[in-house]
Amino acid sequence: MSSFLQLLVSGLATGAIYALVAVGFSLLWQTSQTINFAQGEFVMIPAFFVLVAIKVLGLSFPIAALIGIAVAALVLGVLFKRVIVDPMLKHGVLPLVVSTIALSLFMREAVKDFYSSQAQPFPSLVADHDITIFGTVFSAQSLALLVVALVVVGALHGFLQHTRLGRMMQATAQNPTVARILGIEVERMILYTFLINSILCAIASILISPIYLAKFTNGETLGLAAFVAAIIGGFNQARGAMVGGVLLGILDNLCAAYVSAQYRAAVPLLLLVVIILFRPQGLMGRVEERTV
């Protein structure tokens, strides 16, 4: 029982990270039809921004982390939108997909060539020790990760649902034309989405790197997980991506322990196929109507 609880908590922790990344992913899709194949690399790379700030500029970890988030917002948010997405959007989805695939390759190679191909240790938020609750041992790190991720997801949810700006962003995502008629600055809202996505990715990066170490290949699994989580939850709902992410994390951990470690990676994918077969709009999604 206690091992089950441990698995559940570590699954929740992984799931919360997936949720962070998946929410950003589906927000981008909703507001600008961008399927970002480089999303995993967006999580991989901010850790290296932080490492550069620590090693090269000699800053302390908290300040370096803030700088990492700021640089991520600038490069992966504003620059990504202006340089890659904007010029290509008018050509349809496909060139952009290819471009983000190439971009992910670019980012991976850049880290490998200019930083290191070795896994880098990364400072953690809390000192690593074990905490015993109800006779079950949890690592402080994964608990802290869980708390921070949940707070961020909660804050984002609150922002999207209960603030004026958040609702304006949702309106833009759901129907840009009507949003524009209602006087919402659609362009600015889209830019905010890109900023939010990059910040979420940077936070996920800082949370997950102490555990998995910072390595240039980290993006592969994370990107795929975000993808699957977003579809399981429902592509057109930010809430869906959160649920999908958490579900995926728990499932992933339980399957690794109880089903097969070898086929661990297969479980989310099978879930994905089942969802597409029986509920293509996702668990939380609405059915989209087509206009002729």
């Binding site: 340089v83 890659i84 010029p87 290509m88 060139p95 952009l96 290819v98 471009s99 190439a102 971009l103 390759l105 670019f106 190679e109």
Partner: peptide, 9 residues
């Protein structure tokens, strides 16, 4: 990869 991004743009 940089060439591909440029070409697509």
């Amino acid at each position: 990869s940089a060439l591909v991004v440029t070409l697509m743009a």
